[in-house]
């Protein structure tokens, strides 16, 4: 059973401390929503979990199934089941989405078994199409250069497509709902929903309640000034929707000054 434990995580960007003792445990089958105002360190958490070199872990640990992943390179983390759906995916001109996904799938298969010859073109195409159907994506999408000239909604859909293809065990969705109109949001949310399984733990970073309506999170956490300050169930998200974040700011004034990130 999948389990990620984030323990007392302190993360610096440059000289600045952004995460200040962040704790969270996510088990397979659970969906955790992480909410909070801008600049509280939500994206920092996402990048740190994935191992971006600019995010410097100065204290604490991240355990995947009981083992620290801090020494793993980014690609190793990926091949061990971590997945980040980026808020701002970068473009790789000249590389088609389909080719990219095939290389990524093969890299993963090869890491588990060095003799693996990789997925055949026919099987790959079949797999890709089935996932595209699920996300109501045009097949022509596969032939386009990765994120190059994609609209905001297309990029988000392509991120979820990659998640569907790579079948991670821990998925971090960094504002995958932002910039989507309501139809696109429903498609993306349905897609993520369809991927839910007892083996997949999801950390859903979002500003808005609306994604949660589709996702039915098991836990809702409010993050403020570098750590989680409130945890609860769906009712917490509804409270935020109704009251905004002001009550958080009032309730945790001490963290406010040091929490500008």
């Amino acid at each position: 059973m999948t389990k990620i434990e984030i323990k007392d995580l302190h993360v610096n960007v440059g000289d600045k401390e952004i995460l200040k003792g962040f704790n969270l445990t996510v088990n397979g089958g659970e969906v955790h929503a992480l909410m909070g105002p801008n600049g509280t360190g939500k994206s920092t958490l996402a990048y740190a979990l994935m191992g971006h070199p600019r995010y410097n872990i100065v204290k604490g640990d991240i355990l995947l199934d009981g083992e620290s992943i801090l020494d793993m390179s980014v690609d190793e983390r990926s091949r061990n089941g971590m997945f980040l759906a980026f808020q701002y995916p970068v473009a790789i001109p000249g590389v088609t989405l389909a080719n990219f996904l095939r290389v990524a799938l093969n890299a993963k298969a090869k890491a588990h078994n060095p003799d693996d010859k990789g997925i055949s073109l026919v099987n790959f195409r079949r797999l890709l199409r089935s996932k595209m159907d699920m996300l109501k994506m045009d097949y022509a999408f596969g032939a386009r250069y990765l994120n190059d000239g994609f609209s905001g909604g297309e990029k988000k859909r392509a991120e979820v497509l990659q998640m569907a293809m790579l079948e991670p065990r821990i998925a971090i969705l960094d504002e995958t709902d932002s910039g989507l109109d309501i139809d696109a949001l429903r498609i993306v949310a349905d897609g993520v929903h369809a991927l839910k399984s007892s083996e997949l733990g999801v950390i859903l970073i979002t500003h808005y309640q609306r994604m949660l309506e589709y996702m039915n999170p098991d836990f809702v956490h409010i993050m403020y000034a570098g750590s989680i300050v409130e945890s609860g169930g769906a009712e917490l998200a509804l409270k935020l929707e109704a009251q905004g974040y002001d009550w958080i700011r009032e309730k945790y004034p001490d963290t406010r000054n040091s929490g500008q990130a």
Binding site: H52, P53, S73, D75, F83, F86, P89, V103, A111
Partner: peptide
């Protein structure tokens, strides 16, 4: 750096 990180995050080694 961001391109490299993105591809790494999908399981590709630096060389790949």
């Amino acid at each position: 750096e961001e391109q490299l990180f993105y591809l790494n995050s999908r399981g590709l080694t630096d060389e790949e």
